[in-house]
Amino acid sequence: MKKEDLMKRFKLLVMVNTVFIFLGFQTVFAAGNGIVVFQSDFGLRDQAVSAMHGVALGVDKNLKVEDLTHDIPAYNIWEGAYRLDAVADFWPEHTVFVSVVDPGVGSDRKSVVLKTKTNHYFVTPDNGTLTLVAKRLGIAEVREIDEKVNRLEGSEASHTFHGRDVYAYTGARLAANKISFEKVGPKLPAEVLNIQYESARIEGNTLIGGIPILDPAYGNVWTNVPMDLLLKLSKVKDYVELYTQPFSITITQSGKTVLLKAITFERSFAGVQEGEPLLYVNSLENLALALNQDNFANKFNISAGGEWRIEIRAR
């Protein structure tokens, strides 16, 4: 065979191999990116979180294993839902979140993996934990975990630690490309169990929203009302125009009024005297309430969850 023909064949072989390698990388990347993020209400006083980390690394020691929080109040599904939604899109596509706030462990509640339209994966019981990410990021597909296939070997007799035996194991296998999303289990309707809550909106001259969470360190009251709705309500283009302006704030729990107070909108806590209230924009660019160097939630007996509602009106 001529030297020229050999060179042509060699170049063709290199090109073919390059294409196969590229397609292989594409396929792997499409299935996961090697990142698992854990959340739970376990706390860090015992071995539970370490066990989940160990299971994940047992699947693939090269996985990047991170924690969102393990300080969700016990059984507080709503707070678990909020914390997931607050951080999800700061993480790269194909990140796998494993959330275990599971008061119904061992019952007939479904164990699922949600794939959002942003290509993030959420491994969790379908108990309301997915309420917020499903609505904001959109549902691409939901699959029920087939525990006959996706369960830590040797754990079959245990029915009280699905976080370790089912969720951590399945999430790690998905992130490490040991299984495709289709291998998680059977496809379910594109819906999840939802917790009812007040969505942010304008009705007439009133801005309405919910109180999804409290700032645990300082007792600030965080709403789900985005800053741009306040601009729309006030008919201004720049929030700077609203500094020092008072707004009428009404907070209710299950329809019962807990707080009715005039509070000024400020740039930061320093805009008011120590101990005085303010309305401000928090780090998620939503409206929030605080007392300068004091605890707003404690002083006015305010908590968070789907039954809490805030109304804001210009004065």
Rank of each mutant, 00 (worst) to 15 (best):
D238V: 15
L231W: 01
E241L: 13
S234P: 15
D238Y: 02
A217T: 09
F247A: 10
D228G: 12
V240R: 09
V240G: 04
D238H: 04
D215N: 15
K235N: 11
S248W: 06
N224C: 03
V221G: 07
T206W: 06
N224T: 01
T206K: 12
L214K: 15
I211C: 05
V225R: 08
V221Y: 02
D215S: 14
Y243A: 08
L231Y: 03
T206Y: 00
L242W: 02
P226Y: 01
N205V: 15
L214G: 13
L242F: 07
E241W: 13
D215L: 14
T206Q: 05
F247R: 10
G210L: 14
D215Y: 04
D215C: 13
P212K: 03
L242K: 04
L230V: 08
L233P: 11
K235M: 11
Y239W: 03
L233E: 04
F247P: 04
T206H: 13
S234R: 07
L214N: 09
G219T: 04
I208E: 01
V236K: 07
L230K: 10
I213F: 14
P226E: 00
L242I: 13
V240D: 00
V236Q: 08
G209T: 08
T206E: 04
D215T: 11
G209P: 05
T244D: 03
N205I: 08
I211T: 15
V225C: 09
L207I: 10
P246L: 02
D228F: 07
V236A: 01
L233A: 12
G204R: 08
L230W: 12
V221I: 12
L230C: 09
K232I: 03
T223V: 01
E241R: 14
G204D: 05
M227N: 10
Y243S: 02
L231P: 11
K237R: 07
P226N: 06
G219V: 04
K232S: 05
Y243N: 02
I211E: 06
Q245D: 05
M227R: 13
Y243W: 08
W222R: 05
T244S: 05
I213E: 10
V221R: 06
T206C: 06
L231V: 13
K237H: 10
T244P: 07
Y218P: 09
T244H: 01
P216Y: 00
K232D: 01
E241G: 11
V240Y: 06
D238E: 03
T206I: 05
